[in-house]
Design a protein around this nucleic acid. Structure first.
Lengths: 344, 344
DNA sequence: AGTTAGCACTCACCGGTTAGGAGTGCTAAC
DNA sequence: GTTAGCACTCCTAACCGGTGAGTGCTAACT
C-alpha cells in the first residue's frame, strides 16, 4: 500500500475537499490553483489529481468534470487532514443561552439538543436518550387523589419520576396502598429496573393479600419498566436538510425521511455505533444500503458511568466534518452537565 | 349575483373538482364527457366550463389547458356539492386499534392523533392540545426522595399530574413541607389554575414562615401554571406532504415547513379558527399570505365543556375535503372519549 | 333555443441538434 | 520535475419543429 501521500498530494487533497464541502460542485485544477495558493500551475495539480484518483481518494463523474472526494478521500481527511475547529466562544454562548431559555425539565433536554445540533450543523441530528434499565429503583409512593383513585409515583436514582393514576379497587383503603408501598420498597430498593423481573415480583405477591391491589402496583411498575426499556429517539433538522443541494430532489428527501421514520431501524444503527467517544462513518462505510451516500457522526455520552446514550449528525458525505465533530464532542460533555444541573 | 348555478353547471363543477382532486391535472371537456356520464357532448361541456370560468368557479393556467377549480369553486363545492363520506367501519376499526396499541398515557394522545390524521389524509395535521388554565387545582403533595430532596406532585381535576424535584433548604425537615402542603391545599383547592395568581399566593406566604420553603412551593405551582398556559402544538405528516404533487418542488416544501416551525404563528392561526365545530378555509380565503394556495380545515373539540383544543388538516387547495372533513368530525368526538378513558 | 360536429388555433411537452464552456490528458518544451 | 499548449470529452442551455391535448368559434342540426 503506497498510502503514504507526499506532502503536496495531501495539500491538494485537502484543498479539493475543503472546496467541495463548501461549493458542492466538482472541483477542477484551475479553481484549485486560483483559490488555494499551492505554488504550482494547474497542469501540475492535474497530475496530482490524476494520481489521487488512481489511488482512490478522488472520483470523477465523467471525463472533463472536476473531481469529487471518494469515501476513502474523506476518510483520509477525517483521520489526518482535518483542520482543528474548536467550538467558538460565540457558539458556546449561544448553546448555553439556548438551554437556559428553552429547557425547563429533564424530558426536554433531548429534543432541544437535537434541535440545537441540527441548527448549528444544518443537517439532520439524532439523539438517543439513555436507557434507564441501569437506573436503580428508589421508591414507590402513593398519594390519595379522591375516594376512588390514588396516584402512584415511582422514582429512580437518576431523578426520573413516573406517575400513574390508579382506580382504587372496591373495598380497599388508602391505608392498604401505603402498606403495600412499604412491602414493595423493602423488596425492591436499590435494584436496577432491569433486574426487577417477575422473580422479585412474585416474592412481593406473596406478601400482599389483596389481588387487585397487587395488580395495581404491578401496573405502575411495569409502566416504569416499559418506559425504561424503550429508549427514546429524538430527531431534529429535517428542514435544515432541505438546504443541502444533495437533497434538492424530493425523491431523495422522501427516501431519507422514510428511513428516519423507522425508529427501530435507526436505533439499531445508532446502537451499532455506540462505543467510546466520537465515531465517523462515511458513505460506503455504512452498512445500511440507504446511507451509502450519507455520513454519520456519532458520539456516545455517559451519565453517572452507567446510563448511556448517543448524539449524532447525519448528512451528505459532503459535510462539514470538522464543525460537526467538534460540536458533538462539545455537546457530549455539555449534555452531562446540563442533565446533572436539571436533576438537582 | 347570479350565483345560482343551474343543475347541469353544478354537475359539471362537481365533476371537474372530483377529477382534479384525484388526478391533480387540469381537466378538459373530453375527459369529463368520457369519465362522468353527464349526458352531453364535450362541446356542451366546454360551453358550461367557459361559463363557470366567467363566474369565477374555474381557472385556466393558459389557453388550451384544462380547467382547475378556483378558491370560489372549492368553496361552492364544500358548501353544497360535497358528497357525504362517513368514516368507514374499517377506518373506525383502524383508528380504534391505533389508539389502543400506541397510547398508554394521556400525554401521548395528541401526538398520536396528529400522526393518525396525517396518515389517513396524507396531509399535514395539526393538533393543539387544550389549555389547562380552566382546570381546577386539586392538591399538592410532597414525597421524601432523600435527605436533601423532596418531590412535589401537583394534581389537577382533569387528571393531569405535574412533578418536580426540589432541593430541601438547609435546616428544613420533611415535616415542614407537609405542613406547607396543608396550608396550600386549604387555600387553593378548587380554584382554577388561571385564578391562582399572586393574589392568592400572598395570603399563603403569610402563613408560611420559612422563606425558602415558600419559594420551593411557588416554584412547582408556577411550573404547573406555565405548563397550563403554554398549550402544546403537535404536528404530523410532514413526510406525507411530500407525496402530494403540489410539493414536488423542494422550495415549496421548505417554505411550508419553515412556516410550520414558527409555533406561535401557527397557534395564532389556529386560534383564529377556534369556534364551533368544523371550519374550512380555502386558498385565497386564508389571511396569512403563505397559505394562499393551501387549505386549512379545523375542528374545535371540548373537554368537560371548558378545556378546548383544535385539530386540523393543512394541505394543498386540491384536497380531499370530504374525507378530511368527515375524519376531523369523527376524531373530534372520538378524542373526547379517548381522553376520558385515559384520565380514569 | 339549446346542442353538437367540425375546424383552426394555442401552447405545453417531448426528442434531436447545436454552440459554449469547463475540465481533462497528453505531449513537448522549459 | 514543471508547465504551456492543444485536442478531446461531455455536460448544459438554448433552439426548433412535431405532436397532442384542449380550447373557442361557427355553422349545422334537433
Amino acid at each position: 500500500m503506497a498510502d503514504v501521500l507526499d506532502d503536496r498530494k495531501k495539500r491538494v487533497l485537502q484543498a479539493v475537499i475543503d472546496d467541495y464541502i463548501t461549493s458542492a460542485e466538482p472541483v477542477g485544477s484551475r479553481t484549485l490553483a486560483r483559490k488555494y495558493n499551492l505554488g504550482v500551475s494547474p497542469a501540475t495539480i492535474r497530475n496530482e489529481m490524476a494520481d489521487l484518483e488512481m489511488l482512490g481518494y478522488l472520483e470523477q463523474i465523467h471525463t472533463s468534470s472536476g473531481r469529487i472526494p471518494s469515501s476513502k478521500g474523506y476518510r483520509f481527511y477525517v483521520n489526518g487532514l482535518i483542520p482543528p475547529t474548536p467550538v467558538s466562544d460565540a457558539e458556546r454562548a449561544r448553546i448555553d443561552a439556548w438551554y437556559r431559555e428553552r429547557v425547563r425539565r429533564i424530558e426536554e433536554v433531548f429534543q432541544e439538543t437535537a434541535r440545537l445540533i441540527s441548527q448549528v450543523t444544518r443537517n439532520v441530528s439524532l439523539v438517543l436518550a439513555p436507557q434507564m434499565t441501569q437506573a436503580a429503583f428508589r421508591c414507590l409512593q402513593f398519594l390519595p387523589l379522591d375516594d376512588q383513585r390514588v396516584i402512584a409515583v415511582l422514582m429512580t436514582d437518576a431523578g426520573f419520576v413516573e406517575n400513574k393514576i390508579i382506580p382504587m379497587p372496591p373495598g380497599a383503603e388508602f391505608e392498604d396502598f401505603q402498606r403495600m408501598a412499604r412491602v414493595i420498597n423493602r423488596n425492591l430498593a436499590g435494584h436496577t429496573l432491569q433486574s426487577i423481573q417477575r422473580h422479585s415480583m412474585t416474592e412481593i405477591r406473596d406478601e400482599i393479600d389483596d389481588e387487585s391491589l397487587y395488580e395495581a402496583a404491578l401496573g405502575i411498575i411495569n409502566r416504569a419498566l416499559d418506559e425504561s426499556r424503550t429508549e427514546r429517539l429524538y430527531l431534529g433538522g429535517t428542514t435544515e436538510m432541505l438546504e443541502q443541494p444533495e437533497f434538492h430532489d424530493v425523491e431523495k428527501v422522501r427516501d431519507t425521511l422514510l428511513i428516519l421514520e423507522k425508529e427501530e431501524l435507526v436505533k439499531d444503527i445508532l446502537h451499532a455505533h455506540m462505543g467510546e467517544g466520537l465515531e465517523v462513518t462515511i458513505g460506503q462505510e455504512n452498512q445500511d444500503s440507504h446511507f451509502k451516500d450519507t455520513s454519520l457522526i456519532t458520539a456516545t455520552y455517559h451519565l453517572d458511568g452507567q446510563l448511556l446514550g448517543t448524539i449524532a449528525v447525519l448528512g451528505p458525505t459532503r459535510m462539514q466534518y470538522a464543525k460537526a465533530m467538534s460540536l458533538l464532542e462539545f455537546m457530549n460533555t455539555n449534555l452531562t452537565r446540563i442533565i446533572h444541573r436539571l436533576s438537582r
